[in-house]
């Protein structure tokens, strides 16, 4: 069962199916069907290194050498999924992503920054950040710009135009 359907009580993550709960280190803390049992060490779930900086949650694939990139002066706005690959998004934005998957929107350089993260099935997760204050009008405009970019990228992706 996917643990993402589960629930968090205190510092423990529990599975929705049978309520087995796990500590931050991944070890099983409790098996409700057997309240008297101390779960053996062998029952554990995989854990990943996680860090929260500048309002963004980072998960490491494997053991990272350093901390996540800093995003000074940027405010995270929203995350959205595009049914388009990174190449299609680059084509739609008219710029190449950096090695870290960073794209600055051409129409307003430095104002809207996208972090692209390739997913399975040709999808891309787009995290949208904006510079300066989270003024509602600017935020809404940036959110809509990201939607437009996604529409354009998905069109390119479906038509197979993206390189």
């Amino acid at each position: 069962m996917r643990l993402s359907h589960g629930f968090v009580r205190g510092e423990a993550l529990s599975c929705i199916y049978h309520g087995w709960s796990y500590a931050q280190a991944g070890n099983c803390l409790r098996i409700p069907a057997h309240p008297g049992l101390v779960p053996p060490e062998t029952i554990r779930v995989a854990t990943h290194v996680v860090e929260e900086t500048d309002g963004v949650i980072w998960v490491a694939a494997g053991q990272p050498e350093g901390g996540p990139p800093r995003l000074d002066g940027l405010i995270p706005l929203r995350s959205l999924t595009a049914h388009a690959d990174v190449a299609a998004i680059e084509a739609a934005a008219g710029v190449r992503a950096s090695a870290e998957g960073v794209v600055d929107l051409a129409q307003s350089p430095g104002i809207i920054r996208l972090l692209l993260s390739a997913q399975t099935e040709g999808k891309t997760l787009i995290h949208v950040l904006i510079k300066g204050t989270a003024d509602p009008t600017a935020g809404i405009a940036a959110s809509r710009a990201a939607e437009s970019l996604r529409r354009k990228a998905e069109n390119l992706h479906t038509k197979g135009i993206a390189p």
């Binding site: 968090v8 009580r9 205190g10 529990s14 929705i16 309240p35 049992l37």
Partner: peptide, 15 residues
């Protein structure tokens, strides 16, 4: 499903 986190973890004794 129920949001089980809204209730504290029950303290139960075996048996």
């Amino acid at each position: 499903h129920r949001l089980h986190e809204l209730k504290p973890e029950p303290h139960i004794e075996a048996g």
